[in-house]
Amino acid sequence: MAFPGLLNYWFVVILMMIGFFIVIAHGNLVKKIVGLNVFQISVFLFYITMGKVDGGSAPILAEGIEVYSNPLPHVLILTAIVVGVATTALGLALVVRINESYGTIEEDEIGAMEDDA
């Protein structure tokens, strides 16, 4: 019990903060979406580690297995992964459209153009 303890949550927090850092520190719109993806996967990991039970096996009913991990977070994350891809696709479509209008995907260049106009 002593070893993993709370370390799994801290691992998730580190990954989450790297994703957050990518989103706020970079001006490139594709990079921002990548950062969102990293953040997203760390949230998924957070849910899945919460569902883990010591000595449990995957939640597929079988003879002779008594302990299963919690299936509910798995279901929620299954839905979230697909929704995540949908949002990623929409975001990338917006990026392509912005590139068509402004000829750049750097946030501050777009801002400068807006100020000029």
Binding site: T49, G51, A58, S69, H74, L78
Partner: peptide
């Protein structure tokens, strides 16, 4: 995810 028993999530991911 596979290590954490979430096989369905793993192959979706």
């Amino acid at each position: 995810y596979v290590v954490l028993d979430a096989v369905d999530v793993a192959f979706t991911e």
